[in-house]
């Protein structure tokens, strides 16, 4: 009996939790349907960066303005947390489920459960490799387009160049989707002008420290650099320090273009140390709420929706900086 006691207690506790969950979710789900308010269950990746934080904030604020009842959960970078959360949303019979998948694979089972419960699923920011019929829409940035925006600026900036223009590229983490796509977009654009030459292209792992270290070495090996393209602001900021320490003027002696438009990057742009930034916006909350409303109203939604993103020149950065959210 003494041995069995913990087991009995445990099962009693479990039974209590399960019934509590059941009654609780039944109540909230029912009320959600009754008062006509849409319930959205959202599972966030985690809070690993300032970008992600702004993303979370945007979703919470937009839900409030749109009058949508948001159930929010942070998966702390773990897929099992995310799957558990999505299952609980299915149990609670929310109207729509949205999530930023931690990883690409392994979602089929839980997505099928959602489909069986007739709850539409929207992916945000990151894609999955499951069958597209299992989700309604994927809302997120197009990294190739961001690279192309930088490429277009470069083509325009150096359209009158008569000699070779030496370009250095600081790539993101090797093998990551943004690094591959941004490189592809940029290089496909600049291929049309034979004067534009990428003379060095190295990975700076999306971090400031590596961006600086790589740029320090590249500066030594290449005396003439005209343009630096960094796959994110942080590497660009690291490279700016390296360029300054080499006795050159960032933004003037070496022009710098980056992607992201986080606060520190925008500040450097406004200060004239960066010349151009293509935005990779975390502020997809409004678009997400729009999609949720459309789904609920029974309107068709596009399978792939690209986040509204823009680009910034130095002038635009100084104007936008005071009202930036991140």
């Amino acid at each position: 009996m003494r041995r069995k006691l913990p087991a009995v207690l445990l099962s009693a506790a479990l039974a209590f939790v399960v019934t509590a969950c059941g009654s609780g979710s039944g109540g909230s789900g029912g009320s959600g349907g009754d008062d006509g308010k849409i319930t959205l269950g959202f599972s966030q990746v985690g809070s690993e960066s300032g970008w992600r934080e702004a993303n979370t904030k945007s979703i919470k604020e937009s839900a409030q303005t749109a009058g949508i009842d948001l159930k929010f959960s942070d998966a702390q970078q773990k897929q099992e947390n995310q799957i558990a959360t999505i299952r609980s949303y299915i149990q609670q019979k929310v109207d729509v489920i949205a999530f930023s998948p931690v990883v690409v694979t392994g979602w089929d089972a839980v997505l099928k459960e959602a489909q069986a419960a007739k709850i539409p699923v929207v992916l945000t920011d990151r894609a999955v490799d499951s069958d597209p019929s299992l989700y309604v829409s994927f809302l997120g940035s197009d990294f190739v387009k961001e690279g192309e925006a930088i490429g277009d600026w470069t083509l325009n900036e150096y359209k009158d160049a008569t000699g070779p223009v030496n370009i250095v590229q600081l790539e993101g983490t090797v093998g990551s989707a943004p690094a591959i796509d941004r490189k592809k977009g940029f290089e496909s654009k600049i291929a049309s002008n034979p004067n534009l030459k990428v003379i060095a292209s190295q990975s700076g792992d999306f971090t400031r420290a590596d961006g600086k270290e790589v740029m320090t070495a590249i500066l030594k090996a290449n005396p003439k650099i005209d343009l630096l393209f960094a796959h994110n602001d942080d590497m660009g900021i690291g490279a700016i320090q390296a360029i300054e320490e080499a006795g050159k003027k960032p933004g003037v002696d070496i022009k710098i273009v980056t992607i992201d438009a986080v606060h520190d990057g925008m500040q450097a742009l406004a200060d004239g140390k960066i010349n151009f930034i293509a935005e990779c916006s975390p502020l997809l909350g409004d678009q997400l709420m729009e999609i949720v409303k459309q789904i609920k109203a029974g309107q068709p939604v596009e399978k792939r929706i690209i986040t509204k993103e823009t680009t910034f020149t130095q002038q635009q950065a100084s104007e936008a900086l005071p009202s930036r959210k991140y």
């Binding site: 790539e171 060095a200 292209s201 990975s203 090996a221």
Partner: peptide, 11 residues
């Protein structure tokens, strides 16, 4: 690796 320009994929 950085100065000689080993391609990042094979670094």
């Amino acid at each position: 690796i950085y100065t000689t320009g080993v391609p990042s994929q094979v670094t």
